[in-house]
């Protein structure tokens, strides 16, 4: 199968691969989605300081498109506001990396993992801090 150059580059040399180490001033938030039986599983880890994602990392099992998308999403979302994890939409990445529409299902699992990561941060915040 021929893959777009960007997908190949990120597949063979992925950025932001976990596990993530956090400093004492940072909080480690985690979001997981998918399952091994379904063939796609993603773990996203975020180092968060107040409401800012300082660093993001992923580990994933899935096709080359998914691995490339995970890597690219980590770069795009960190550093940045933690709310951006919940707002992530895969359409932009699909266009940027040339990901075919039949792979949308895998990217929705990435979306779930990012949202779960946001939730992990959000549920521990005092009501006024959200």
């Amino acid at each position: 199968m021929d893959y777009p150059e960007a997908v190949r580059r990120l597949f063979f040399n992925p950025e932001c691969v976990g596990p993530l180490l956090v400093r004492s001033t940072e909080r480690l938030c985690r979001g997981e989605a998918g399952s091994d039986t379904a063939g796609v599983r993603i773990l996203v880890e975020a180092a968060v300081q107040e409401d800012q994602v300082v660093r993001l990392a992923f580990r994933a099992r899935g096709c080359p498109y998914l691995l490339a998308a995970c890597s690219r999403a980590m770069v795009l979302l960190a550093p940045g506001p933690v709310g951006a994890l919940a707002a992530f939409e895969p359409a932009g990445l699909m266009g940027e990396l040339g990901i075919p529409t039949e792979k949308l299902g895998s990217l929705l699992i990435l979306q779930d993992a990012l949202r779960n990561c946001f939730r992990d941060w959000d549920t521990t915040q005092p009501a006024g801090a959200r």
Binding site: F12, V17, D36, R41, I42, L43, R59, A60, R61, L67
Partner: peptide, 11 residues
């Protein structure tokens, strides 16, 4: 080995 480095820890 490359793919296992990228994989999440076993459940």
């Amino acid at each position: 080995a490359h793919l296992r480095r990228l994989a999440p820890p076993a459940v």
